[in-house]
Structures are given as structure tokens and as C-alpha cells.
Design a protein around this nucleic acid. Structure first.
Lengths: 205, 205
DNA sequence: TAGATTGTTAATCGATTAACAATC
DNA sequence: TAGATTGTTAATCGATTAACAATC
């Protein structure tokens, strides 16, 4: 039986996990679907329903033990291990991503950085040596890297994605402002700040 | 009658707009719901349905004139004008956002940058002078700024959001890894790369 | 015990898809 | 004309919510 759990449920779990980590950090030990829902602007029923796809993590009358639920969600999401992530593009955007401090302790770390520009190759971003795109296939295959972040210009993104997929990458976080066409077994997520801004201006006068 | 158009429809329009701008850049003048859907991985029926909420933009038999549809979507999304955006936070993340070249020509530009750290205030990020948080209310009120991007640590984000809202901001793009509680008339969008990565690891082995 | 909260079922609500007449 | 594609209606599908028995 292939996972029959709706995509949209999976997409909410990381948000729950983040909230639990925050609560935990604030020193709280137990929470309820009601409290969590209030924090997240989601109904308590939806939270209980989502969680119930994976088992009964709570106790009637008392709610959820935060540490326990957090561990369970980490397992479900497959982020108990630490994933190596390749970063493609060492321009302004790639630089920012490479320097971002928020990956550690949440299941990810950057393993290598690539760029096509000969004048960038050999230089460093922080702790990372910039490698030439020609090495991409070899490095990614040898290290068995499955996740990549794409921070190249829109024009180059599809071709970079194709190369990544050929090298075995199965998950792409795309910062380039363009839609990628990928096979069914490859997952793509998009980050484009302008898209997010444009989703709000509709409601402004 | 208040807008009865579903949120989820609005959220797809910027993606359509981006695709149209790309097609236009590639020199194409006409497209169809079928072609657009194939590019975006969306059914043609959904695209036609979404667009039909706002009027008939196409022609039977021939499809949509790209330049025309693009203009119409810009009008619908309210991005024909250029919006001033305030940026709060001049750390690593704020720096990256301030230097991001992707805002121009898509309806937005950064108007001012704030930080609470006294040693940062008065310095510059690129073309922007960093202003003290104490000036936030005054500057935002006087300039009538309605949109802000928050790039401060998680601990500070809620309080910054409250201040922004008190100053009249109605749309917040939040880069801090935390959920914000805001009134109903304020819109929030979130960018947290780790959330996006965690949405994909579930599907990896 | 009384109060609280879960997990789950059934009902409701809303979104997507299929299909096709209209028409370019 | 014949072929293509829209805009829209109705059917399907799926997600959210309400409600409550179970139970801590």
C-alpha cells in the first residue's frame, strides 16, 4: 500500500513540528489540539484529524506530551536523520542561502555549493568551496545526495534541475522564479517572495 | 458584495502571471489553458475556471493573448502600481532580502530598512540607510506603507508584527520561523525554507 | 467524581474535473 | 468549413468541521 495520506496533511506537519519546538523551548511540556490550533490559526479538529493519520499521540483529558509528539512528527517527516543538501548557484541569492543559519537542528545541512561561472569556482562562501557545475553529477552521485536547492537565474533553472535529477536528486527547493517540469517521482517546492507578496496585494486597496 | 472569490484561486494567479511574463519574454504572443496548464502542472479546466471568476479573457478557438491576459491579471492582483515595502531586520537574512534583485518590475520595491541594534542603525545595506526601530511607527505612518517583510529572530517577530500593524501595515511577509497572530484584516505569508524541505523528506526513503 | 480532551464518524462544505455548447 | 479552444454547468471528488462516545 503506497502512502494514502493526502499531500495537504503532510504539508501541515512541519508547521505543527515548528510550533511544538517553540512550545518546548518556552518550557511547556504538554499541549492540546485547541491550544495548538489557536497558535496556528487552524481548527483543533483539523489538527486531531491530521495527527490521527499516523496514530494516537495524545491522551483524552490531558492532551499531547510535547516532547513525545515532536519526536513522532520528526519520525513521520523523516527528519530524525540529518540530510545533506546541495546548493546550486553562488550569486547573491546562493550566498544568502549558504549563509542562512536556520538549517541546523532541523534536519538539514548544506553539503556542497556549485556555480557555473569560472571566476567563482575555487572561491569560497563562508565554509564552502565553490565547485564547478561539471562536477555536479560526480559529487552528487558519489555522496548519494537526494536534496538540492536551486538558486540560479530563471533561464538556467530547468537545465540545472534536469542535471540534478539525472544525478539522483529527488527533492528540489527552487528559488528561481520559474516553474520546473520534473518526473512524478521528484518533488519540488518553490520560494519566490514576489509570489507571496502578490498573494496579498489583491486584498489591499 | 465583498469579494467572494476563494483564497485558493487568488493564490494561483501570481503563478499564472509569472508564467505569462516568461512566455512573453520568450517572444510568444498567444497561449492556451492547455499549454499553460502543461507548463504549470495544473489542469486546463482549473485555469479556465480560475480566470473566469474575473471575466472572459480568451477567445474560443484561439486562446489567450498573453500581453492582454498579463495586464488583466496585474490589475486583478493590484500590482500595476509599485508598492513600497518596509523591511524589518538587518541581520544576515535582512541583508539578503535587501540585496535581492527580484522585486523590481514585479510591483514592489523596498522603501526603508529597520533594525533594533544600535550598532547597525546609521549604517547602510546597499542603498538603504538602517533606521532605528523607534522610528518605525512614524516612518511607516507618514509614508503610508502597507506592506512589510519581517526578517528578525523568531523571539522578536510577534512584537515587531504588532508594532507594524499598529502603524497601519496590512500585509506581512514573515521570514521568521514562527507563526504570527494577527487580526482578520491583516494578511500574512510565510517563507521558511526548512518547512519546504520538510514537506519533501516525507516522500524520500 | 467532574472536567477536559482525544480519536473518529458522519455531515457539510468547497474545490476540482469532466463534458459540452458556443464560437472563433 | 473543420479544428480548436473558451467559458460554464453539473458531477465528482476530497477536505474540513461538527459532534460525541470513550477515557484520562
Amino acid at each position: 500500500m503506497p502512502s494514502s495520506i493526502p499531500d495537504i496533511v503532510i504539508s501541515r506537519l512541519p508547521v505543527y513540528l515548528r510550533a511544538l519546538e517553540r512550545l518546548s523551548q518556552e518550557g511547556q511540556e504538554v499541549t492540546s489540539s485547541h491550544e495548538l490550533g489557536k497558535r496556528l490559526g487552524i481548527s483543533s479538529a483539523q489538527i486531531r484529524k491530521d495527527l490521527s493519520h499516523f496514530g494516537g499521540f495524545g491522551k483524552q483529558g490531558t492532551g499531547y506530551r510535547i516532547a513525545y509528539l515532536r519526536e513522532q512528527l520528526r519520525q513521520v517527516l523523516n527528519v530524525e536523520r540529518d540530510w545533506e543538501v546541495a546548493l546550486i548557484g553562488a550569486g547573491d541569492l546562493g550566498n544568502a542561502v549558504a549563509r542562512y543559519r536556520g538549517f541546523s537542528n532541523r534536519g538539514f545541512h548544506i553539503a556542497c555549493v556549485f556555480d557555473s561561472a569560472p571566476d567563482k569556482v575555487g572561491k569560497s562562501i563562508g565554509e564552502f568551496l565553490i565547485l564547478p557545475l561539471d562536477n555536479l553529477h560526480t559529487v552528487i552521485t558519489e555522496r548519494g545526495i537526494k536534496i538540492a536547492m536551486v538558486a540560479v537565474p530563471a533561464e538556467a533553472a530547468q537545465s540545472v534541475a534536469d542535471t540534478l535529477i539525472a544525478a539522483g536528486v529527488r527533492a528540489i527547493l527552487n528559488y528561481a522564479p520559474i516553474n520546473l517540469n520534473v518526473p512524478d517521482n521528484v518533488h519540488v517546492q518553490y520560494i519566490d517572495p514576489v509570489i507571496h507578496l502578490q498573494r496579498m496585494t489583491y486584498y489591499l486597496d
